[in-house]
Design a protein around this nucleic acid. Structure first.
Lengths: 152, 152
DNA sequence: TTTCAATGGTTACATCTGTAACCAATTCAG
DNA sequence: CTGAATTGGTTACAGATGTAACCATTGAAA
């Protein structure tokens, strides 16, 4: 290929972002339709369902969301009574968030949707290639979080 | 793993999106710092540099951007005199966009930055794994654009 | 022709996101 | 202790994005 041109379609950062976006939107369509969740709300629910009780800060860390995003998603889920806040006994800045019964029900619906979606992807790629791909992501993530930052 | 819980950190759509975001932001930092470009502007420039002259519509198709995003990025690049518009001879709705001299200079600066960044990723993953990973993306993309849509 | 649907592109509006400022509570240093 | 710096969390504001409405032009049908 010519050295003074760049083929956008095969440039990895572009490709990666584009495809991630396709996948994410496609999946979001599913849970938005059936459960009325936005992506941040889905993630909060996923965190609480998985861990039982978390602070807003912990949710942000686990799911890579900005604290304002978490704050807003939590407020909305609380409004729908899918979670409740419990003040921490010893540190009154902190609130522990837990899913309500209703929230647990929604979580129980969202898990199989997620599994099914992932299974579709895995099948489309082939299980072996899927695993290999996940490992590639692993490497990429490690690199980005560690060394990637400094110029070469 | 328990069947009624989902491990967010290893859920592919989440992982994929998160890592794509990391990569994209990291790369954006570079060209924003050095060239003062937003992501949509970078993509428009990439399209024009690669193809010479395009309509706004074609740019949107090549780089997977909504037409309003393209419209705004083009307006900004025009304001900086990095591209010019030429009305189509036969269809007066259409404008052909081309890089100005200044625009070509910026393009010439952005290409090596892109290559260098991609090379860093490739090196971090190992060339073989990188290629395998690209192929995985390929499969994923095909699936999303074709069959992925219908419920299983 | 004349009319009506479709197309390239821009703009108005609502929504979402991040930055920064903020509040209350807590911790740490002197 | 007391005051400054830190932390969990919310909110105000500004910027980016998508949806929908729009304008001008073209194509197709009657």
């Amino acid at each position: 290929m010519l050295d003074d041109k760049l083929e956008l379609e095969s440039f990895l950062p572009y490709r990666l972002y584009h495809i991630a976006d396709l996948v994410s939107r496609e999946f979001a369509k599913i849970y938005k339709d059936r459960l009325g969740l936005t992506r941040p709300e889905w993630r909060v629910l996923a965190g609480l369902g998985q861990h039982g009780a978390m602070t807003a800060k912990a949710i942000g860390e686990q799911s890579a969301m900005h604290k304002t995003k978490v704050s807003r998603a939590v407020a909305e889920l609380e409004r729908r009574r899918w979670l409740t806040r419990t003040p921490d006994e010893t540190d009154r800045r902190v609130e522990h968030l837990t899913l309500s019964k209703a929230g647990q029900t929604v979580y129980a619906e969202m898990v199989p949707l997620a599994r099914a979606f992932e299974r579709r992807l895995s099948r489309a790629m082939g299980a072996a290639r899927f695993a290999e791909f996940e490992y590639g992501l692993e490497r990429l993530e490690t690199f980005m979080l560690e060394g990637g930052l400094s110029d070469e």
